[in-house]
Design a protein around this nucleic acid. Structure first.
Lengths: 239, 239
DNA sequence: GTCTATAATAAGATAGAC
DNA sequence: GTCTATCTTATTATAGAC
């Protein structure tokens, strides 16, 4: 139904794509709520009204931008996880499950077809502004994948109570989102700049050991000083 | 210089406090940027113009709300850390350093003098919207405390390269901020609701082992498959 | 499909009476 | 100190010519 190049003043077909690309990069830099349609259409070099013509509203544009990335990303994550489990004999070690969670995002971020490269930060933003645009949208997008990873992690750490696992996944996603959102927050921590802040692969390589250790940590004592139970299978450090 | 109860239509002295309280609770629930002055003055049951009279601008109000909490909080954290170090002989275990980071926030959140109790979420919000209102404000507020904790953690894990430590602190703050921001994001992870989501103490008790293990995790192999080095002192799990 | 022009809303800030 | 009324600005969204 769409045009194939007719009589419009501009090339025609690519306006929608230009808008998605401009919106994505601006959302990445500034967040969703802080970015106006005027900024988006200016960067895309299209008319302001084009947003409403192609998407209907700013909300719909936001959803479209996210869906374009999150859909394939979570599919890739689950597929990656499926493949790892199919190849392995027993339950996967936690580190490999984290790989399945992080590497597809890393690949996406370095796909030269995607203009700006750092799609990671867009995802971080999405998790950093949950109450604004994606109150009921993001959960649907993530619930399937989240359940799948919870299942895998539960198999990797059969002794960890489910309630504890849920919390630790929450902590994990928090660390991931924060790191992915990037830029501003980084300067808060260090007097010195964190090294390699712009290299996603380096970040992932540092993140996996941190999260794997956290996920497999001994559980806290109930409330008194009784000894902690061993949480997971502790594949590397078991005696 | 301020009034002591004169001829104004309303009680008088407490308008400023009412504004701070209303703003704080609304920022907590919706974030900073999403909250308008009109909502704030409506909840505080004061006139719209009062904000500009007492604070000068919305930005100044935001800073005031944050400073009222973050200042004392970070002071308490550093004092707590100082006291722990004074009492201890050697370097502190990582778990205790994390205590110093989290318990003062926990106490603040349960101070019955503070109306709504969950000040934690305000702090989480502050870290979740870094680019908006606190671009240069939050860093100043945190830099001193952050350096202090980096120092303590460096002593606890003398073998961990500083670059690695900075990143791990970053991951740590991310997990903390995400958990503190609370509410919306929590539903993303689990089909089931996370237990005790409204009990800060329970969250802290689960968070400390997770973060302590992450901070002390073995470092990643450089790029190939060479064996990881032991990062910190691993006080509990050392062979 | 694209554009100009404009409507409709909501925001932060101020002036000036009381 | 507080209030009403208003200004200015920025936003999303639309109507209608081309």
């Amino acid at each position: 139904m769409a045009s194939v190049g007719r009589s419009g003043p501009k090339p025609g077909v690519e306006t929608r794509e230009r808008l998605l690309a401009a919106a994505e990069s601006l959302f990445m830099e500034q967040g969703f709520r802080s970015t106006s349609l005027r900024e988006i259409t200016a960067r895309a070099k299209v008319n302001l009204a084009a947003v409403n013509y192609h998407f209907g509203s700013k909300d719909a544009l936001v959803r479209e931008v996210l869906q374009r990335r999150l859909g394939p990303l979570n599919e890739a994550r689950v597929q990656y996880l499926d493949r790892l489990e199919a190849e392995a004999s027993g339950p996967l070690p936690v580190e490999r499950i984290l790989e399945a969670l992080l590497l597809p995002a890393l690949r996406l971020s370095r796909n030269p077809l995607e203009h700006g490269s750092t799609v990671l930060r867009l995802l971080g933003r999405a998790f950093s502004e949950p109450g604004d645009y994606m109150k009921d949208f993001l959960p649907d997008q993530y619930r399937v994948a989240a359940r799948r990873f919870q299942q895998a992690l539960g198999r990797a750490m059969p002794h960890l109570p489910e309630s504890e696992l849920v919390w630790r996944m929450h902590f994990t996603f928090g660390a991931i989102a924060y790191v992915m959102a990037g830029d501003d927050a980084l300067q808060l921590v260090a007097s010195c700049q964190a090294p390699e802040a712009d290299n996603p692969e380096a970040i992932v390589r540092r993140l996996v050991p941190f999260l794997a250790a956290g996920l497999q940590a001994p559980t806290a004592p109930p409330l008194d000083g009784s000894p902690p139970t061993l949480a997971g299978t502790l594949p590397r450090r078991a005696a």
